[in-house]
Design a binder for these strands. Structure first.
Lengths: 209, 209
DNA sequence: CTTCGATATATCGACTCGATATGCGCATCG
DNA sequence: CGATGCGCATATCGAGTCGATATATCGAAG
């Protein structure tokens, strides 16, 4: 999961670990403020697998005043961190290890995005964040698979039926159950919106533009 | 987190690992279908710490036809598993290790429930599931702390302000952001309800019963 | 000058997951 | 009747993640 996020971010910019983590935090504000204990081992793994290579120098454009554009997460990051960057630009390549994505890495990134398994709740949002890299048809297929997964969960939840044996479920338990199903429904509604927007792009069917 | 769930369930019934997992799955339908790779080590940890003790025999009341009542999760479990139990009752204490909670375990359970740290998103629902074990004032305090935590997250998210630098955030990113904040708001609303219901019980203030 | 906080990399132990191995008891079916 | 498979039950393994911690440098503030 982390690998997907790292590859996705490195596909936009060459970055070093610390900056990578900041962008991760900016991208997925609440969820996923990845720890260094995961990040550095993940980078080492990716490097050993040849999906990523260290480029030594170049501190990466930590939100340059006038961006070369197309940075995606960069702009968001610029907002989260008003006061970062010391204006000096190249503050010396002290210990910094800047990483860049390789061709194999780009290929692997696409494979991860197209993976048929959509059961990982943590990974899915990350995949959506980078799904613009997929061809429209595969993107739509990804969303569709996820929707099927969520619908299956709804079915599984509905099974208990009456929800009470002789009635006592502590109120707290009932409340928790309702919260969960509400969250699931909300997630499904969100997905439906995504899919609808996607289909509108893929096949404008009725009424030509 | 798992320890909390285990202690909570064992506080209701003596159970063996397999049954424990089933009840966990029934209790928290979607989230938290705990794996054996976590469960058995956790049980071993708890046993070594003296919070739980193996009682050897007694396959535990897997939803007896007329429950002794007060089982909490038991009733829910009865619905999820219509056909479980072989009617034989004591199908021989083959490999089964039935666990029971100790006094130290009960005490630890209360400590875990009252823990001031409410930042763990996975653990909180579990704590709510067993919060009936807390005195009303501490229960209310728990909910209050969680609400403060969520409100702090909302604040942190709102910081970016305009949400767009020069406008481009890929739509997908914007969609993800909205989904997250919506989920957060929904969770807060749920908590507000919980707290309102709780306060109504604790202090009926205006208008006597 | 020294302390402080942000930058930056890295490791450690603990926890969880998913896959897998093993074995018993019971039912089903050729 | 015996094989075959399924549900029950315990357990371990490797891999990934987390939170805490260690270490070191740089710039700014006191």
């Amino acid at each position: 999961m982390l690998e997907l996020a790292i590859l996705g971010l490195l596909d936009e910019d060459d970055l070093h670990g610390y900056e990578l983590r900041k962008r991760l935090g900016d991208l997925f504000g609440l969820r996923l403020a990845i720890s260094f204990g995961s990040l550095y081992p993940a980078l080492a793994r990716l490097e050993k697998a040849g999906l990523v290579k260290a480029v030594s120098s170049r501190p990466a454009p930590t939100a340059p005043s006038s961006p070369t554009s197309g940075s995606l997460a960069g702009e968001l990051a610029a907002f989260h961190s008003q006061r970062r960057r010391a204006a000096s630009g190249a503050r010396g390549a002290r210990g910094k290890k800047v990483y860049g994505i390789s061709d194999a890495g780009r290929q692997h990134l696409l494979e991860l995005l197209a993976d048929p398994d959509v059961s990982d709740d943590r990974a899915f949002p990350v995949r959506v964040a980078f799904c613009h890299l997929l061809p429209p048809s595969e993107r739509l297929a990804l969303f569709g698979r996820r929707r099927a997964e969520l619908r299956a969960r709804v079915e599984r939840t509905r099974q208990p039926g009456a929800t009470d044996g002789d009635g006592r479920v502590t109120t707290y338990l009932r409340s928790l159950l309702e919260r969960d199903t509400a969250a699931l429904r909300a997630d499904l509604a969100w997905l439906d919106e995504l899919i609808a927007a996607e289909e509108a792009l893929v096949e404008p069917t009725e009424d030509g533009p």
